[in-house]
């Protein structure tokens, strides 16, 4: 904490000279600001740093990669289908003659887009819904949360698949159907957090001061509930990308010529039995790496935020 000026002499701070050699209330131990402490905890978690780096790498790989590594991803070329790696195609070609490495970049773009967009939708909707329920309390809360209970009891993948039979052609559609059934968990989390926060002494203290409801929400409840939301976002991204993979594998992915990693694994069974390993493992590996990275980041963030609040 070098940004603070050195302590002025204790004697000048207090009207009366202190009894002992320390100020009456004791020195303030300099630990670190809350965010810095969380950041330090996060950086200390090596797996999390690896996760963050992996995620950054894949974002660059998918979005900047195609600018450097030009490939043809629009016109099929029957002459060069299913080539093994080598000879200008480091990861070979697929059944349409597209360069697999370039394909992974393009597919990654959509996978990441859907993941981020779906988790964004889920988080925004869930946070609003959950905080309304938690703040309103009583019968409103009851009705809102029973609705969440009901939706949560419908198996996620099944209902999403059913919807995907009609709506899964574009990135937006896929993000919407995934988002529309994944806001439930954040809604529950945020509501629970708001309910516990409401009973915390510092919120009582603000009420005693005469704080308006809106101020309570903006200054105390939201900032304190934020860490739960942030942690959840990363898990949401991971789940959305996984769900996308399932949709693709079962054949309900994006419409040709758009493609996502999941769609590329749609024929994986045949590829494996025919020995076209380069069409399965590189793209699968990328998918696992990104999901793993998100999970690691989320886990580390949760620990980091926990430490900050638990520190006494």
């Amino acid at each position: 904490m070098a940004e603070y000026a050195p302590l002025p002499d204790v004697q000048t701070l207090h009207g009366t000279p202190p009894i002992g050699p320390t100020p009456e209330g004791g020195e303030v131990q300099v630990i670190a600001s809350g965010w810095k402490l969380a950041l330090r905890e996060f950086l200390d978690n090596r797996l999390a740093v690896v996760g963050a780096l992996v995620l950054i790498f894949f974002v660059l790989f998918c979005f900047v990669g195609p600018l450097v590594y030009h490939t043809n991803q629009t016109l099929t070329n029957p002459l060069i289908t299913d080539l093994p790696p080598g000879g200008g195609h480091p990861l070979g070609t697929d059944e349409n003659g597209f360069d697999e490495l370039g394909r992974i970049m393009v597919g990654g773009q959509t996978a990441l887009e859907v993941g981020f967009l779906a988790s964004f939708i889920a988080t925004v909707v869930g946070t609003l819904y959950g905080s309304i329920a938690g703040l309103a309390g009583g019968i409103v809360d009851n009705v809102l949360m029973r609705f969440v209970d009901i939706l949560l009891s419908i198996p996620f993948l099944l209902i999403v698949l059913v919807l995907a039979t009609k709506y899964s052609a574009t990135v937006l559609e896929e993000a919407l159907i995934l988002g529309s059934f994944s806001w439930l968990v954040p809604a529950r989390l945020v509501r629970g957090e708001v309910l516990t926060l409401r009973e915390r002494d510092f919120v009582y203290a603000a009420r005693v001061m005469g704080s308006r409801r809106s101020r309570l929400v903006v200054r105390h409840l939201i900032p304190n509930a934020l860490s739960v939301v942030i942690v959840n976002v990363t898990f949401q991204i991971a789940d959305a990308i996984l769900a996308l993979a399932y949709l693709g594998f079962l054949g309900f992915g994006l419409q040709y010529p758009s493609v996502s990693w999941g769609d590329m694994l749609g024929n994986a069974q045949n590829y494996v039995s025919e020995g076209y390993w380069w069409l399965v493992y590189p793209v699968g590996g990328c998918l696992v790496a990104v999901v793993l990275a998100c999970n690691l980041i989320g886990d580390a963030l949760r620990d980091a935020f926990d430490v900050r609040l638990r520190r006494r």
């Binding site: 100020p23 209330g25 004791g26 303030v28 670190a32 600001s33 203290a205 006494r312």
Partner: peptide, 26 residues
Amino acid sequence: DEVGLPANALERYPHEFSGGQRQRIA
């Protein structure tokens, strides 16, 4: 100053204080 805390306390977060100091702030 009246509750006996140094002025550099203003910029700090509650977790940086001991229990007694927090009670002074409260």
